[in-house]
């Protein structure tokens, strides 16, 4: 897959404060790239540079092969940008709002009418076509803004915290929309400070902290990074202490802890090994005669990777 967004040693300083430091980032075409980091990590700054709204102090960035510094107009044609905080023209009707932005993207009047209807259909606002923008709920405004960013059929979408401040239902709707857009072949560069929020839609993740990219890779790669040390919960009907001693004696078990559970209590096993080794551990336990009733891996979400990688430097 071809690279569609690339930054090289991208740096932005505001006086003595460094917002982004030597950021090297690549996003492949068709990917949904989750850009994750705590507040103030430099996500918005990076996105604003990519959206041609900010000039970097140093470094370069390209969108679809066009420089965000030199070919700003072509970049604007290629991207659809949605900032984290944005206003809408409340005194306009929903269709007028989209029609206006379509016109700003130089879409001829003859085709705009169809386009507006299609966009409203896409973001599920067709029934609010004649309403004033001010009358829409926050989630609807967010969707309208997304529709606006799609008016010129951009290849790349740059969405800065599209789900922040939305209720759970509106979040799900945005997530569904992102899936739909990915299916249309769009590359989506989406940021969030809450990883679990975008974990389900991302194909790739980049974790940024204090202006530096801490980790990047596919969702699978990121998951593997924590699965080097997996945590397995083992529930037993009895012989808990014996099992604990037995487990502690195995070479692939790093640590065994007794935790509160049903009845006799459970064991939390920190295990270093792949799936095969884990299966062997279970069969060995059963062969050894331990009454195992529960054997499950505590799937560490990306949140764990996130917490482990970002050590809370910013916060």
């Amino acid at each position: 897959m071809a690279t569609i967004v690339e930054t090289r040693r991208l740096t932005k300083r505001y006086g003595r404060l460094t917002a982004v430091e030597e950021l090297d980032l690549t996003v492949n075409e068709g990917a949904v790239f989750g850009f994750v980091g705590p507040n103030g990590a430099g996500k918005t700054t990076t996105m604003r540079i990519l959206a041609t709204l900010l000039r970097p102090t140093a470094g370069e960035a390209w969108v679809a092969g066009q420089s965000v510094l030199k070919e700003r107009r072509s970049v604007r044609r290629t991207i659809g940008y949605m900032p984290d905080f944005f206003g809408v023209y409340g005194d306009m009707k929903v269709w007028e709002y989209l029609d206006f932005f379509a016109a700003c993207y130089e879409i001829p009047p003859a085709t705009r009418c169809r386009l507006v209807d299609d966009l409203l259909e896409l973001v599920d606002l067709a029934h609010r076509r004649e309403d004033y923008v001010d009358a829409l709920s926050r989630g609807m405004k967010q969707r309208l803004c997304l529709a606006r960013a799609l008016a010129h059929d951009p290849q790349v979408l740059i969405l800065d915290e599209p789900a922040s401040g939305l209720d759970p239902r509106a979040r799900v709707e945005i997530r569904e929309l992102l899936r739909e857009l990915q299916a249309m072949g769009k590359t989506i560069f989406v940021s969030s400070h809450i990883l679990s929020e975008i974990e389900e839609v991302c194909t790739h993740v980049g974790i940024i902290e204090a202006g530096r990219l801490v980790a990047t890779g596919t969702l699978e790669e990121m998951r593997k990074r924590i699965q080097v040390r997996r945590i397995v919960r083992v529930g037993l009907m009895g012989q808990v202490e014996e099992a604990q001693a037995w487990l502690a004696g195995r070479p692939d078990v790093a640590r065994v802890e007794s935790v509160a559970g049903n009845g006799e209590g459970d064991l939390q096993v920190t295990f270093a090994g792949d799936d095969e080794a884990l299966a062997r551990l279970l069969s060995d336990m059963v062969s050894a005669g331990f009454p195992v009733v529960l054997f499950s891996e505590e799937t560490g979400g990306l949140e764990d990777v996130f917490m482990r990688l970002t050590k809370g430097i910013v916060s």
């Binding site: 107009r73 940008y81 900032p83 206003g87 932005f101 130089e106």
Partner: peptide
């Protein structure tokens, strides 16, 4: 906060 939306258009 509508200025940036406007400025990223053509």
């Amino acid at each position: 906060k509508t200025y940036e939306l406007l400025r990223t258009t053509l």
